[in-house]
Design a protein around this nucleic acid. Structure first.
Lengths: 201, 201
DNA sequence: GATCATACGTACCGATCGGTAACATAGTCA
DNA sequence: TGACTATGTTACCGATCGGTACGTATGATC
């Protein structure tokens, strides 16, 4: 819900202000590339070609905008994560490895910035920040999804395998930023395969 | 080198200002717990019981103090990481697993904040920041050390195994913050053992 | 054409940011 | 005593922070 409307108004097809969309798009790019704390609202609105009041008409605060950015980010994540479903229906392992292959490529490119959701949790240690809540909820969802996929693969201990794969995922997000092009993320696929093989029987 | 002295003065046994040590200690705790960007210099000096000029007499800037904090952090890291050497000499695998066991415990405690060095890289995406440089240099050192240990273990492909273990490490740092007490870090030891076993022959 | 809601901009707010100038005080060593 | 160093005190700087009061342009409806 991007808008902070008061009245229910004409159904739910609320015609959003165009400025709000521009802000949203710009904020998402800047927050991801530079970090949330590093970017001021002034920079967002100026790059979006609008002004501050336009921002605060659609978002209650910067924190609110940050949370919205993460919701957008999460939506985009799931699209990529579940893309393998179409190519490999009824093959959880192939679906997962499809995502891993793409991730390994992205994470060994220069300028990679990892996962926006994980980064937000690093930036905001306090449990009360709205952005952090979005991120933590998502990660729990992801973990549950991984467990379900490991069950579908027929793993001996789906929980443990899912934990291992999640550690590899988060490790890839971090390592992609830490090391340049020849970082450990290049071995993600090989290692994940080994781990899955070892967990199946 | 904590002090920004100009003159070489009496040998290297520079009697450091006591205020500098208090600042250093306080900064380290606050920077780690709350993040570097989240903590202002005013808060550091007031909590340390000193004043701002004292900070800037010993450190050129906040960025400089942040870099110093990470150097301290790195020193502490290596002490913990190499602690297993004493208990298990000539057994690289046992040394490594000793660290992993301790890490898994820490990372499944409430309030865990991950690796200060990794966090700094997340906070400062720009390649030029002094804190980021300290962190990246350290991570490269760590990677080299892991490769050496994997060679000592007799791994088929020491590089790939080291990459995998590094991904698990970074994944544990991140997951420790993302999930609470029952996070995937609890499976770190099990998964690492599986991976090592699969890589030995 | 008057009315009214919506969308947007100009100009500003107080607070805090990192950092500094200038001076006073205390201890140390010769 | 005198020179030197370390520290505190106070007051300040310009810049930027997140956020807002208030006026204006536009477009639809009666």
């Amino acid at each position: 819900m991007p808008i902070k409307r008061n009245e229910p108004s004409s159904s739910d097809k609320e015609t959003k202000p165009k400025a709000a969309e521009r802000i949203r798009h710009t904020a998402r790019e800047l927050f991801y590339r530079e970090g949330i704390r590093a970017i001021g609202v002034e920079e967002i609105v100026s790059r979006a070609g609008v002004t501050k009041p336009s921002l605060y008409r659609s978002y209650a605060s910067k924190d609110d905008l940050a949370a919205e950015y993460l919701r957008d980010y999460e939506g985009a994540f799931w699209k990529v994560f579940e893309a393998g479903k179409a190519e490999h229906p009824d093959d959880a392992r192939a679906q997962l490895m499809s995502y891993f292959e793409g991730l390994a490529q992205r994470a060994t490119q220069g300028g990679y910035r990892g996962c926006g959701l994980t980064n937000a949790v690093v930036e905001y240690p306090g449990d009360d920040h709205p952005a952090r809540k979005v991120a933590q909820t998502h990660k729990r969802k992801l973990r549950a999804r991984l467990i379900a996929m490991c069950e579908a693969m027929g793993a001996r201990s789906p929980d443990v395998l899912a934990d291992g794969l999640l550690l590899l995922l988060e490790g890839t997000y971090a390592s992609g930023q830490l090391f340049g092009k020849q970082g450990p993320a290049r071995s993600l696929v090989t290692v994940a395969e080994q781990l899955i093989d070892a967990s199946l029987r």
